[in-house]
Write a protein that binds this DNA or RNA. Sequence first.
RNA 1: CGGGAAGUAGCACAAUUUGGUAGUGCACUAGAUUUGGGAUCUAGGGGUCGCAGGUUCAAAUCCUGUCUUCCCGACCA
Length: 469
Amino acid sequence: MEVKEITNRDVDFAKWYTDVCQKADLVDYSTVKGSMIIRPLGYAIWEQMVAVLDQKFKETGHENVQMPMFIPESLLNVEKEHVEGFAPEVAWVTYGGKEKLDERLCVRPTSEVLFCDHFKKIIHSYRDLPLLYNQWCTIVRWEKTTRPFLRSREILWQEGHTMHATAEDAKKETLQMLEIYKNFQEEYLAMPVITGKKTEKEKFAGAEETYTIEAMMYDGYALQNGTSHYFGNHFAKAFGIEFVNQDNKLATPYQTSWGTTTRMIGGLIMTHSDNNGLVLPPKIAPWKVIIIPIGDVSAKLTELEKSLKENHITYKVDNSNKTPGFKFAEAEVKGYPIRVELGARDLGQNQVTLVRRDTLEKTTVSFEDVLPTINILMDQMQKDMYDKAKKRRDSMIYQATTYEELKDIAATKPGFVKINWCGKSECEQKIKEDTTMKTRCLIEDEAVDGNCIVCGNKAITKVYVGKQY
RNA sequence: CGGGAAGUAGCACAAUUUGGUAGUGCACUAGAUUUGGGAUCUAGGGGUCGCAGGUUCAAAUCCUGUCUUCCCGACCA
């Protein structure tokens, strides 16, 4: 029993993905390439993510601000590495009405320079630090290839920007935010993730250290689902940001930035969803329950709705005049975690049928037990989805000890490969050219013993490599 | 940005080869009968054929350009 019009996941994964996005009414394409319309269900999922993350940011002392959308060219040019990294993909505003602008304005691709420009004005003393800011906004990067949620030109995201008195404090902040992202994705999105440091070659333009959150999709491809950067004081120096420390000496502060985007929705889909459509972990689903009345059950429906409301369980009722079969299928496409089949025939025996979306397993309970059972099923489902995703991911992580072995895995098995590496970009580049795999992140908590899989020189670290979105 | 494929009603497609009144199914609207895995009947509505030029008595059809989508690379959250 498969949903009509959704391509089979194992036949054409890419097509399946865009089918799910569209059939579940998450997005629509707009007339401008790479600018997607996020529809109510897609946006509701994002709002859930925002609510949880925003609270975590505030609990750790961050404040929300809103920076301008435009960056004057001269400002973007202040930090050399940064501008070189972003210049190829920025959009420019060159006219205001009919008048050509004296200085063109770039539409922010990220806001480091805007924050620095502002920080310069407001940081004077060690008492002003740490300065912990975040903003929810959209940015623009002129991507060549675009796909709903995974790669768009207009990106809905969150970017944190902080300044600290010492390098230790800034490094601590970088890791703290990485941990918050990891916990959020594992606990709420039921996505097992790998965190670690990016290589020199893969790090953010202008950063000293970039940490990444790497998730593995159903097809074994990697998706970078967030980043946290430690900048040292490069930007601060370039922008002339200084403060007076406790010894009354001038000092340069240390900086971080960190971000997550609606790409997480894409990751969520490619981790959990199936041939019947969307599957959402209960903790992130905007509506936990869909009630499908069959026959005349209005009295019990009212009673059930009251009880759901009292227990703060969000739900929807499908009161359309479609047949039950249609409603079941529709509920599956949209990914409601729990389906309540409230049928006259069942209720005659004081029974209600509950169906969990991930396994499509049916449970029949007495009407009085509906609410507690919903809670039990949701808890179980949240846990099972994580375990299932983790088991699948772990089964697709390989270890290669020779270069031939790596090439063989790259050609035949989807997933990540752990390898020994000497740390040189040339070896990293060769892997990419030969296998299209890029380094995901360094593995710093495992002892290294042996030689670089590419050049044979002494390895200094282990690293994950994998194909990516 | 390179290589490939495709754009005709909300969706899937036909008509294009051979230029001559734009069609089918699903969806939609109204009414009726239905309702435990994608209902049935009847009657309706909806398309300047992606867009812009050109050729022609005549263009969905031929030519040129352009935009968008999908796949494979390069780039990236």
